[in-house]
Design a protein around this nucleic acid. Structure first.
Lengths: 128, 128
DNA sequence: GTAGGACCTCACATTGACGTCAGGGTCAAG
DNA sequence: CTTGACCCTGACGTCAATGTGAGGTCCTAC
């Protein structure tokens, strides 16, 4: 498939796909005219890249860990440690976000309750 | 307290604290000479700001929702909806990150198993 | 009253993952 | 062989939070 189709299939812009290639995250065959051509498996790969990016991994980090994701045979102690570090970081970030989520959820609940009440503006002002 | 102390207490740089003020997220009293002065409660407030930033809220979004966090009396339907939207977004992001976390955890597990195998001579040295 | 560390206000630089424009080549269809 | 949609390579723009440097001010201690 060509870059436009892959973009369509993944939700990533052509610009992003070229950027991923530039960062070494995504390969492509080229036609004689120089146009990129992707196998169907590229869809899954792009999804993985975007998922890792969304999780806060940088493209260079993804560059480091991607080979061992797609080819499990490649493993080094350094790579293992890197994966562990990233997992720890993601876990920390998840916990932090969950705390923040609870703050927001508490606010939403408070508002929902407040809106149900007739005119009790000071119904539950018991938070710091 | 002065900006340096607040920076020390919160882990935010003085530059960041001035930025938060510039964005309307953080108030400060000024001395006659123009230097910022903060009450002790500012520590908690900065922590909240940073937590929301870390959760992916932009400073302008935080600007919108902060007043109702610190002063529960202020509530409008628009603000409630805004909070709900942000909560939904954070929840989506959390689910996405948890899926990615599982991918990473799966890899780490796979590696861990591989490293338990007999001839794993490099058990301890995990330097970068 | 003076040293010097902390602080002030601009204002430009940086980083990362893209958007976007310019100028030109490719390719399936007619 | 020409059209027109799609694609190419630069290269500069963006956005948000922050770094950084210049040039000047404040304030506590001596």
């Amino acid at each position: 498939m060509r870059i436009g189709e892959l973009a369509e299939a993944t939700g990533a812009s052509p610009r992003s796909l070229r950027y991923y290639e530039e960062q070494g995250l995504l390969g492509s065959a080229r036609s004689t005219g120089g146009q990129r051509h992707y196998p169907p498996t590229a869809v899954e790969r792009v999804a993985l890249i975007r998922s890792l990016l969304a999780a806060g991994l940088s493209s260079s980090t993804i560059y480091d860990v991607l080979p061992c994701i797609t080819e499990q045979a490649i493993r080094t102690p350094a790579l293992t440690a890197r994966l562990r570090d990233e997992l720890t970081r993601v876990d920390d970030q998840l916990r932090e976000m969950q705390r923040t989520r609870e703050v927001l959820a508490g606010l939403v609940d408070h508002y929902a309750v407040a809106e149900q009440l007739p005119h009790a503006a000071n119904a539950a002002p018991t938070s710091a």
